[in-house]
Amino acid sequence: MTEDDEFAEFANAHAERLRNTAFMLCHDWHLAQDLTQTALTKLFLSWRRAVQADNLTAYAQKILLRTYLDHRRRRSSTESTPGVLHEPAYRENPELRLTMLDALARLPERDRAIVILRYFEDYTVEQVADVLEVPVSIVKSQTRRSLTKLRELLAADQLALFAG
């Protein structure tokens, strides 16, 4: 099996998961598709180095995360900030209740990435710190801050999720 065959086998097995992660980051299927393809292209180009990694899946996720954050950085000067949620509106009207993904989309990019890596990808605090190249203490504090923010954003019946 050639290196390209090995890459194709890995990519076919993980593309769906990578795209799901990308979607949760950007909340846009088309952009998620583009981010996934870009990340896979970068992985293809660094395949020889990638296969030396202890955890190839985590390596691919790391590339995807960086691709997403790079994309956000490039677009930040041209995009408007997402509108601030009008809390009373959705609390009075259940039809407007936020889903978890909606709430996630309202977190800052890096905070969103931390929540997704911690609670969707099951990464440890140390692994998240490695992927995002930030200190462990930052991951912990931003996780706490993100959960607090999510609790504020989510509708009343979902508050139990965080009740303790």
Partner: peptide, 12 residues
């Protein structure tokens, strides 16, 4: 999902 893997290989 489409041909995201094939496209990545071609671009790569």
């Amino acid at each position: 999902l489409g041909d995201v893997v094939g496209a990545a290989i071609r671009d790569g």
